[in-house]
Simulated assay, not measured.
Amino acid sequence: MATESSNFSVPSIDITPYVADGTAEERAAVARAIDDACRTVGFMQILGHGIPDAVIAGLAEAMDAFFALDLETKKTYKTPPKINRGYSPPKSESLSLSLGVESANRMNDFFEAFNVGAARSDYPGVELPADDYAENVWPEVAGFREKVEAYYAEAKRVAETMTVIFADALGLPEGFYDAYTGHSLDVMRMNNYALPPGRIQLDGDLIGMGEHTDYGIVTVLWADQVKGLQVLGTDGSWNDVSPADDALLINLGDVTARWTNDQWMSTLHRVKPPIVDGTIERRRSAAYFHDGDIDALITTMPHLIDDAHPNRYPEPITVGEHIRAKLAGSRAGKRNDTAGAEKDRVLAARG
C-alpha cells in the first residue's frame, strides 16, 4: 500500500460568489471547480465561507474548556450508542466497523468527542423519532453552549450553501435539495486527539480515527493545522491533509455518492495523529455533518446512469436506514453488513 502520492492534491476553491451575491459567470466558475473536485478527490479547501474569526475562536475555546475536564466528569455526559449526542470517551468507537470491516484493534479509535445536533424541538410540528432527533446534552461549562451554538449556526449555513453549489454543478433544478433537507438530521462532532498522562498500553497500532467514509450529504470540517488527517487517493495512497489558512475542509458523504452513482466521491479518510517523543501531538477538529431528512429516500439520479456508468445502487435507501447501520458499526461495535463498495475500498487500501 502506498503511503504518499506526489500526484495527490486537495484543491482550494473560493466560494465568495455564492456567499456575497456574485455574478452568474462567477458562480458558474465556482460550480465547475466544485464539480471537478467532487469527481476527482472528494475533498476540497473552501475559502470565502464567511464564518467570522471570533466565532471560530469561540468554538476552540469551548472545546478546550470541555476536554480539559477530568474523564469521570466527562463520562457523566455519555449517552447510549443509539443516541448520537453527548460524550464519547477514547477507545469506545471503531469507525472501520461502520463500513463492515473488522479491525484487529476493535473499538480502539483513540479520540474523544462531544456531539450536538438537530433535535425534535428544532422542527416543531414535524413527527420525528426521539432517538434520532434527541435533545442535546449540554455540559456545565461556562460559555460552552453559546459558543458552540454560534459556530453550529455558521457551519449549517456553509453546508446549505454547498448544496446550492452542488445543484448548479450537477445541473439540477434550483432548490433541488430543499425537498430532502427540511428537517435534516445534522450533527456536529467536536473531536480531541490527545493521550492522557502516563503510559498507554495499546492492543494494536495507534489509531486516532479508523478509516471511514462520512455518512450524509456533505461535511464541513474545521481543524487545527496539525498533521493527522489522511485522505485516500485513487491510487491507494494515504495522503496528509491539513487546512490552509482561513480555510474549511469540505468532503462528501455516502448519500451524495449514492445519489450521483459514485461519479462524485465519498472519499475514505482516517486520522493518524503524529507521535512526538512518545506522546500524541494534540489535534482538534469539529465536523458538521449535513445528512438530510431521516425519511428522505435516496435514489440514484437518472441523468448519471448510462452505459458507461451502470447503476451501482439499484435499491433505494432512506437516510435513516443508512445512518443507523453506520452508527451501529461505529458506536455499538456491530459490523455494518449493508456496506458494499465502501467496504471494498477499505480492504483494497489495506492491501
Rank of each mutant, 00 (worst) to 15 (best):
A119M: 11
E102D: 11
G117N: 02
T161Y: 02
L128K: 01
E135S: 09
P81T: 02
F114H: 01
L172A: 05
N108Y: 12
S98M: 13
V148G: 04
G143I: 00
K82N: 12
N136A: 11
E93Y: 07
V101E: 02
P129H: 09
P90D: 00
A142G: 14
E149Q: 14
M107S: 06
F144R: 07
A104Y: 03
P89L: 01
A142D: 15
L97Y: 08
E93H: 12
T161V: 15
S92Y: 04
D168P: 03
L97R: 15
M107K: 12
Y151P: 00
E174M: 01
P90E: 00
S96M: 13
R106E: 11
P129R: 05
T79Y: 02
A150V: 04
S92T: 14
A155F: 05
A155R: 02
N105M: 05
F110K: 03
V126P: 04
R106W: 05
A134V: 02
D122Y: 13
P80W: 07
N84Q: 13
N115V: 07
Y87L: 08
N84W: 14
L97Q: 08
Y133S: 00
D109E: 07
G175E: 06
D122V: 13
E160Q: 13
G171S: 03
E160D: 05
A142N: 14
L170N: 05
A119H: 03
F166K: 04
E135F: 14
I83C: 01
E149V: 09
K147I: 01
K156L: 14
E102T: 10
K78W: 07
L97C: 05
A167L: 02
P90V: 04
